[in-house]
Amino acid sequence: MQKALREAFPRTLPVLAGYLFLGTAYGIAMRARGFGALWSGLSSLVIFGGSMQFALIEPLTQAFAPLTIALLTLLIQARHIFYGLSMLDKYSPLSRCRKPYLIFSLTDETYSLVCEGAPADADPGRWYTAVSALDHSYWFTGSILGALLGSLIPTEALTGIDFSMTALFTVIVTEQSMDSFRRVRAGEIGLGEALFAPLLGGCATLLSLLTVGKSSFLLLAMGLMLIGFGGRWTLSERRRGA
């Protein structure tokens, strides 16, 4: 496991920067609402979902409303269903002691690191576990730091470092595109096949954001993507049948 941690660590550096900063910001925001390190730490340990934890700060100070909270969580977290769907073939064969933790810790950032699979020379199960546990520890450490040190941390000087998350996703889109174009040039896939998924994802999300606004656009975007992929699948099945 130590070897896996050493191998996985460099890959998780962008998440280290992003999670420490965002986690600290979360701890500080919780403290400003009267929730100390115990609450931030507990939330980061058992929820492990940044956007949801931020969204929960305000409701935690209000009256107990389990149904509303459950629906809000479902709305914000529904995108994880897609992550599970695309990790089925990679996580399903793994041992029963690893799988539950890997599924629990499948955040946006962890997914972005594991979705293309483990490096060829690594033990997949150990590598996935190392990436997930490292990410989890960064997020937990950040939120404890923010809650404990709060005002001592010069967050002003670090403003903008959370862009490392956007940069991480941008690099992965770039890498996927370069890979697709290499395969198009090699004649393995057509241009349509290369462009369909990223264009569908981008257009569906942008269209949803512009029409329903930023509070609930992900759900609409997911619906549009499912319709798009379903349509493409049906067409190609029909062509195959004909």
């Binding site: 995108r79 897609f82 992550y83 769907l85 695309s86 997914y111 972005s112 979705c115 293309e116 996703f169 992965i172 889109v173 996927q176 697709s180 998924a197 990223p198 264009l199 569908l200 994802g201 981008g202 569906a204 999300t205 992900l218 975007a221 993507m225 992929f229």
Partner: peptide, 8 residues
């Protein structure tokens, strides 16, 4: 999905 979701 990975390529669609990363764009998202």
């Amino acid at each position: 999905l990975p390529r669609a979701v990363m764009a998202m």
